[in-house]
């Protein structure tokens, strides 16, 4: 039991923050890439969260608050030793409309698997590997939205960018991920190949 010495009762830290341990670990794992680093990140996150608990507004989303701390810790650590496998982000994420609303993947799947049932047949490890290969900004947005269910506003506040940028990162991140999974499914023989979706990537903007 944690000693009761903080103004914001530590018992509420246990009740409000600790239940999100699995979610923070999942997020940390996708950010850092390895279980050992993720575990360190989680420990650091909760220690910092505990020390700052007086600043947490009870009743707001503790999960989102913890994710913010986790990401900040990760970014600071990365400054000290940058990851080597980071994919250089090719685009400057901007808000704005979508020129091609039709998912290029859909054209490839038309008549073969138009509802994308193949996504559900891909092994979890392959999906996770594909997520981990996304540029960091996209990966963060996709994990926070698709896996953890945070709102655009929450992600925008966490990452310090406008909501339009969050939308753009989600759009690009999802499309990239879908392409990687599609290619994997073709290689694995789940889908017939030869549809050449790669050439269509530049049809989506911005």
């Amino acid at each position: 039991m944690i000693a009761a010495s903080r103004s914001n009762a530590p018992s509420s830290f246990e009740e409000e923050a600790l239940p999100h341990l699995d979610a923070v670990y999942r997020f940390a794992l996708r950010l850092s890439g390895t279980p050992d680093q993720a575990e360190d990140l989680v420990q650091d996150t909760f220690l910092r969260a505990y020390r700052s608990w007086a600043q947490y507004t009870p009743g707001t989303r503790a999960k989102s608050w913890l994710f913010t701390i986790c990401r900040n810790v990760f970014l600071r650590q990365r400054e000290r030793g940058r990851r080597h496998d980071e994919i250089v982000q090719r685009h400057t994420a901007m808000g704005g409309g979508v020129v091609d609303a039709v998912n290029p993947l859909w054209r490839s799947l038309d008549g073969v698997d138009p509802e994308g049932a193949f996504f559900r047949s891909i092994l979890d490890d392959e999906v996770l590997r594909a997520i981990d290969r996304l540029p960091e900004d996209y990966r963060t947005a996709v994990v926070l939205s698709d896996v953890e269910g945070l709102t655009y506003m929450e992600i925008a506040e966490m990452t310090g960018v406008p909501v339009g940028t969050v939308k753009s990162r989600l759009f690009r991140g999802r499309r990239q991920l879908q392409r990687v999974l599609y290619d994997y499914a073709v290689e694995a023989g789940v889908l017939p190949g030869g549809f050449g979706t790669r050439d269509e990537e530049d049809h989506v903007a911005p």
Binding site: N103, E115, G116, F119, I131, L177
Partner: peptide
């Protein structure tokens, strides 16, 4: 079908990452 495709994709993501538990 486009909507269904996006739903299938989301289910795959949620299933893969959501099942991860802390050690």
């Amino acid at each position: 079908p486009h909507l269904r495709l996006e739903e299938s994709f989301r289910i795959a993501l949620r299933g893969a990452s959501g099942s991860v538990q802390s050690p």
